[in-house]
Design a binder for these strands. Structure first.
Lengths: 218, 218
DNA sequence: GGCTAGTTTAAACGATCGTTTCAAACAAAC
DNA sequence: GTTTGTTTGAAACGATCGTTTAAACTAGCC
């Protein structure tokens, strides 16, 4: 990884986070990075490939942390299910911790960049999401199912879908919705917001399971 | 509202839903609507104004339904708080019912269009969101606070933020995350998904409140 | 030094974007 | 039937997009 490539990747994160994928321009990225406009196509092939590279470069490590932390907890318990709240924490925390970093160094933008761009309905992101998140999705689906033996399987699928949607929605919209409040919510203790969100998701899922599968009783 | 304007609005919904705001092009919209390319600037002024028009045209009625339903329930109770789950239902249902319409007529695309475009970090959408949703935000914030007298105020703000983020995230990402599952989740009874999501949000909020404000005990 | 492989540069490519122009076509009112 | 104001049509505007080209530069190695 050359110095130029790193400068491009860093500039790309900011540009994608600020403007989305379609809104980001090669010229802005290269200008911000202080490199020639042709560098992106020379080093990465295309705008799409640049994004793909950034995506993998940043999220593959995060997903490995999630998978290995979950595996640790599972081995610690010798097959007994990991409690739901802990599963959710392992899924959510690695991403949110990056966003809620301390005031003295600004949060990395790539989480924002990726959450934003994933909202754009390009076919690229459907493929990329599969490449990067499929394994995490299936592993955590199994873990949640194990943690909730009384829930039926399609219901767990639905709950996981709620949880992931909420997570991406949070990353994308928190700061904007925050403005409705008139007062900053993000200034609160970072651990507190994270804990609240984990409680929110955990309670949401277990509340649904307690209410039972709706398709039988209605 | 002339016939041309309506044709443009309908075509715009599809185009914005499929491609996002930046990805949508005036030429595609006018071609789809079967009108001249200059019509949009003649009738609406600009691409931004067209979107603004569509936004208000579609969401103002939805928000009025939300506000009037909530007011009904409040008057029915003579000042006693409306239960949390009902507040959430009134907030969520008017939007989701539109998405989960029956198979014989396809769901209106504008909900998707707006959810998608709101994810794009253009300053336009910050302003538009304020114009359209501020009143709903404050009214439902007050209703949730009334329903949860034991919760402290900043915590309720946070919970509402979670709820709204989850809602927009659901609209934007459900179909894509659904693909991870390998089986369609949206085919389930529409009432069931809606009910599950309402339960999810309601349980999430009340679970957080039961756990108490985190900033005091840590 | 000369050669090579890798990298950077400035300029241009074709395509598409949102918007504007202005004359022709139209409608309704007198 | 003429006039007046509104709506369309085809064409063009300037700008910007992602990408490509070919020449210039920069090591490292014989």
């Amino acid at each position: 990884m050359t110095e130029t490539q790193i400068k491009i990747l860093e500039a790309a994160e900011v540009e994608f986070a600020d403007n989305g994928f379609n809104g980001a321009s090669i010229r802005n990225i290269t200008q911000r990075a202080g490199v020639n406009i042709a560098s992106i196509n020379y080093h990465f092939g295309s705008k799409e490939s640049l994004f793909r590279e950034m995506f993998h470069f940043r999220f593959d490590p995060i997903n490995e942390i999630r998978l290995s932390r979950l595996r640790e907890e599972q081995e610690l318990r010798n097959g007994a299910p990991v409690p739901l709240e802990l599963v959710i924490r392992i899924l959510v925390a690695p991403v949110f911790e990056l966003l809620l970093s301390e005031a003295d160094h600004p949060p990395p933008r790539f989480v924002l960049a990726i959450a934003r761009c994933l909202s754009e309905p390009l076919e690229l992101f459907t493929r990329l999401g599969g490449e990067v998140f499929q394994e995490v999705y299936e592993t955590f689906f199994a873990a949640i199912r194990d943690a909730l033996p009384q829930a039926d399987v399609p219901q767990v699928r639905l709950q996981l879908n709620f949880a992931i949607s909420s997570m991406v929605g949070m990353l994308t919209h928190f700061s904007r919705i925050e403005q409705f409040a008139g007062e900053p919510l993000f200034r609160r203790q970072k651990d507190e917001i994270l804990q609240q969100f984990i409680t929110f998701i955990t309670s949401g899922i277990s509340g649904c399971v307690a209410a039972g599968p709706q398709h039988e009783e209605r």
